[in-house]
Simulated scan of single mutants.
Amino acid sequence: MYPVTVKGDRVSLREFTPEDVDAVLAIYGDPVATRHLSFEPRTREQVQATITAVTNAARAEPRTEYSLAAALPSTDEVIGFARLAIDTQHSGQNSAQIGFALRPDTWGQGLGTQTVELLLTLGFDHLGLHRIWGARSPNNTASDHLMRKLGMIVEGRIRHHLLIRGAWRDSIVHSILEDEWQATAQS
């Protein structure tokens, strides 16, 4: 499926373009924004390589990665990076992992909640997935609250999951199933 656009009232998800490098650098290059992510802050060259990779992956057949710009609908200003990656190894492509990051000056405004809600809409309503999961830093209480608010259940802890900044970090896994999403969406 290309191009992808999923619209909300406060955030829209759309394909990245080469012009989005600086907007993504404001997220991926920021130590505050990347504090709970699975990587250290990135340089402009690294972000440019990421945008090139995701724009190329967007046209793959079959498409298994949906890395999308989270933008404000009124201005198309990119404020976040949203990703849904289809699990291709063991699930029969009925499961996917989500991830997201927003520019710190947009935190606390409900934009992250709508970004994840749009990823769930993409996965369940457009791609017909059965299960969507996400992993977060144990210290990222905002993501914990956000995922629980959207009906995602805590499945458990992956111990020493990631080596970041020279130290091992655990990850907390949340997931939601298609029928749980349908029940949440209808309420």
Rank of each mutant, 00 (worst) to 15 (best):
V4M: 09
V4P: 06
R10L: 13
V11A: 12
L13S: 12
E15P: 00
F16I: 02
P18Y: 12
P18G: 13
E19L: 10
E19R: 14
D20S: 06
V21H: 11
V21M: 10
L25A: 05
A26L: 14
A26W: 06
I27K: 05
D30T: 07
V32I: 14
T34F: 04
T34D: 05
S38E: 12
F39H: 14
R42I: 04
Q46M: 10
V47H: 12
V47A: 12
V47L: 09
Q48G: 00
T50W: 15
T52D: 13
T52P: 02
T55I: 07
T55F: 10
R59C: 12
E61T: 15
R63W: 00
T64N: 09
Y66L: 07
S67W: 08
A69S: 07
A70P: 02
A70M: 03
A70Y: 02
A71G: 08
L72D: 05
P73I: 05
S74C: 05
T75Q: 08
D76Q: 14
D76R: 14
I79P: 05
F81Q: 12
R83A: 07
R83E: 05
L84H: 06
A85V: 15
A85K: 15
A85D: 12
H90G: 08
Q97F: 07
I98S: 04
G99R: 01
G99A: 14
F100G: 11
A101N: 06
A101D: 03
Q109A: 04
Q109L: 11
Q109F: 03
T113E: 09
Q114N: 02
Q114P: 00
T115S: 12
E117F: 00
E117S: 01
L118A: 08
T121K: 09
G123H: 06
D125A: 11
L129T: 07
I132W: 00
A135N: 03
A135W: 00
R136S: 13
N139R: 13
T141C: 01
A142F: 05
S143G: 06
D144T: 14
D144P: 01
M147Q: 15
M152H: 02
G156D: 12
G156T: 09
I158M: 10
L163W: 15
I164A: 01
G166V: 10
A167G: 11
W168A: 07
D170C: 02
S171W: 05
I172T: 11
V173E: 13
S175L: 05
E178L: 00
W181I: 05
W181C: 03
A183P: 07
A185E: 13
Q186E: 14
S187P: 01
